[in-house]
Design a protein around this nucleic acid. Structure first.
Lengths: 240, 240
DNA sequence: ACTACCAATTTGGTAAGACCAGTTCGGAGG
DNA sequence: CCTCCGAACTGGTCTTACCAAATTGGTAGT
């Protein structure tokens, strides 16, 4: 039995150690993981802690626990939960290149449709909220701060204006899983003003009740962000 | 202390009892839940079992656990995870009317865009998979079976043809949370043949690489299903 | 009356040990 | 070679215990 020692902070999050463990062993869907007792011993944790982590992984459809049999890996591509990606991002595990491409693409699709609905349904308080966030963002930019959170707030407020709370939940997941990347994006202070101008154009189109203009504005805005990430991925692929 | 007894199967799933408990007490976001020890006593379970359930609810952003302080309810509309709805559905907790409307609307939006991408990118094996599922569905219909799972498989195969695995994860969540409703829908055997004809039209449009025709076909197909659910909700509202 | 401080209580986090009821699997017996 | 049975293993659960940090309440000092 080779024990896997915990190095400092790692002790805190068993899931953050279990996921790489699974990936490192190249387990295929259907394969059985070591038993709870063995995992506990291997990670230097109690069975209770292991069970807690496994309960989360089961809820996120990464794993299946069969009573009196074992813990089995599920086919993640086909059945994995979107929240599993959120959890990974929060644990600091970087997304693969394919995942970044797919996340960025789907986010654009979702938000282009969201902004259409928003333009059709927005109420006065929705536009007010957008204006408040825009003003707050101006303040952050003026103070040379990082407006990543305000950026997220604006986009989420746009989705909220659709009146569809389920829509909001889905898009929120995407903003949670890309928080670190967005902070890095806005670390270059020159990007915020352009983003802010595009946000204002979207706000105006939505306030005017013009779905087509709103969709075009959102599409252009997100395609700009998208191309930035694609270039970054290519740089990384070249080994920069 | 009023103990909440477990009735039969309920003992098995603590989450399924915790969620109604939270809802019944009309807790507002930010409110503190009883301590782990009190919850354990109240539900007649051990602290370990309670902690396992709370770990899942925390991962699904329903709850926040602050060390040495307490367990707090999070604003679910704004931050709740989409998987929390999936979990509720699996536990047999029915969606609210608003949730059904929103889920149905968002599913249509997602799939109309998915089928566009599928028509642009489909590979030969994607069309083959669609054909296999259509044939399997024919067999089920001929045997007077319930083709709800084949229906889901077809729609998910459509999303898979986009090549975007994250897209597949998101749409899969919607099919997981509506499985029971779809089974009820197809319980009336007269619905399956029409659905199958529409599926074939979508398959042909995708195979032909025609995004517009595919989107129209999917839109019409899902709008038909949608109107069925809306009528059912109105019936329920009238007290049938 | 107000403030600063300290100690007891409460909280979530973790560990260790035990028992149960099914599953699994290998060896004994045919 | 097949069948059957029992021992070992596995997840599910409960109990007990201890820790460290946060909270709380009262007390002593101003």
């Amino acid at each position: 039995m080779i024990a896997i020692p915990a190095t400092g902070d790692e002790r805190a999050n068993l899931i953050g150690r279990l996921l790489p463990f699974i990936a490192h062993r190249r387990l295929e869907p259907g394969d059985r993981l070591p038993s709870e007792r063995e995992l506990a011993e291997r990670f230097g944790a109690s069975r209770g802690a292991v069970r807690e982590a496994l309960a989360v992984l089961e809820a996120l459809r990464v794993v299946e626990r069969r009573p009196n049999s074992g813990i089995y890996l599920r086919p993640v591509d086909r059945h994995g939960s979107i929240e599993a990606i959120v959890l990974q991002a929060e644990l600091g595990i970087p997304l693969t290149e394919a995942e970044v491409r797919e996340v960025v693409e789907l986010r654009r699709i979702l938000e282009m449709q969201a902004v259409r609905l928003a333009a059709e349904r927005r109420r006065t308080e929705d536009v007010q909220r957008l204006d408040e966030i825009l003003a707050r963002t101006d303040a952050v930019i003026a103070a040379a701060g990082n407006p990543a959170d305000e950026d997220a707030a604006f986009h989420l407020a746009m989705v909220e204006a659709t009146g569809n709370h389920v829509f909001l939940r889905v898009v929120n997941a995407f903003y949670l899983m890309s928080r670190n990347r967005r902070r890095a994006y806005f670390a270059d202070g020159s990007r915020a003003p352009l983003s802010q101008r595009q946000h204002r154009a979207m706000r105006d189109a939505v306030a005017a009740g013009d779905p087509d203009a709103a969709e075009v504005a959102m599409g252009g805005h997100l395609r700009g962000v998208e191309s930035y990430w694609m270039e970054l991925l290519e740089k990384r692929a070249r080994g920069d």
